[in-house]
């Protein structure tokens, strides 16, 4: 095993992460969207493991395994069950069409490279590369939340943002203290469950999960 195998693998997973995130934005099907999210999370776990090997930080294995367990298996299953029980349409509905979303996404990618280009205190190629990528993932998550009509796709956007933050934490700091990581995982799980309940409540109250219906709540 040559010395720069692991760094080059990290580069590869980084590219794949970006591609997966773009695919989430581009996918017109809800199921595909969630599967792509699972893939994105899987790549995230792989990156974490590679970083753990590269930096020799053993406790990163635990968040990596938790990512596999929670984001690759549990959360997608929760989503599938939710879709089945709600009986909703499988298409993603958006205020702006998918090509335009992609153009915006690319613009945001440029913006994140531009915005983080001269941050002080960064060393190493990985950091210089991963910071803008993670920032772009966060922006794309926000883009999804701001443009999608249905509550479920907005939750996917939120989870994408969380993945972006996780990526930033892993590559920038070689992992936060374990307790913080565990807390974040717990937050994500509870968040998904609460939002699931919330979605059911919206359905019950407005006979649909179109968040546009919430406009009647304003004063």
């Amino acid at each position: 095993m040559s010395a720069d195998l692991i760094p080059s693998l990290i580069h590869l997973t980084g590219m794949l992460l970006l591609a997966a995130a773009l695919a989430i934005i581009a996918s017109p099907q809800l199921f595909a969207c969630i599967r792509l999210y699972a893939a994105h999370s899987f790549l995230l776990a792989a990156t974490t493991i590679l970083v753990a090997c590269h930096e020799g930080v053993t406790h990163l294995w635990i968040p990596a395994l938790l990512t596999l367990l929670l984001k690759v298996i549990v959360i997608p299953q929760v989503f599938f069950r939710m879709i089945r029980r709600l009986g909703i349409r499988r298409e993603v509905e958006s205020y702006i069409n998918i090509p335009f979303s992609l153009i915006l996404a690319v613009a945001l990618l440029f913006l994140s490279f531009y915005g983080t280009a001269h941050l002080p205190g960064l060393s190493g190629v990985e950091e210089r590369e991963f910071i803008p990528m993670a920032a772009a993932t966060v922006f794309w998550g926000m883009l999804m939340m701001a443009t999608r009509k249905k509550a479920l796709t907005q939750i996917v956007g939120l989870l994408l943002m969380e993945n972006g933050l996780f990526l930033m934490a892993i590559t920038l700091t070689s992992g936060m203290p374990l307790l913080v990581e565990l807390g974040i995982f717990f937050d994500v799980l509870v968040g998904v469950i609460i939002m699931g309940v919330f979605v059911f409540k919206i359905r019950d109250a407005f006979e649909g999960i179109d968040v546009d219906d919430l406009t009647v709540l304003k004063g």
Partner: peptide, 16 residues
């Protein structure tokens, strides 16, 4: 306006 997406966009645009 009451649109949740609009409020999210406000936050998003402010951040950017």
């Amino acid at each position: 306006r009451g649109h949740i997406q609009l409020y999210l966009s406000y936050i998003f645009i402010t951040l950017l």
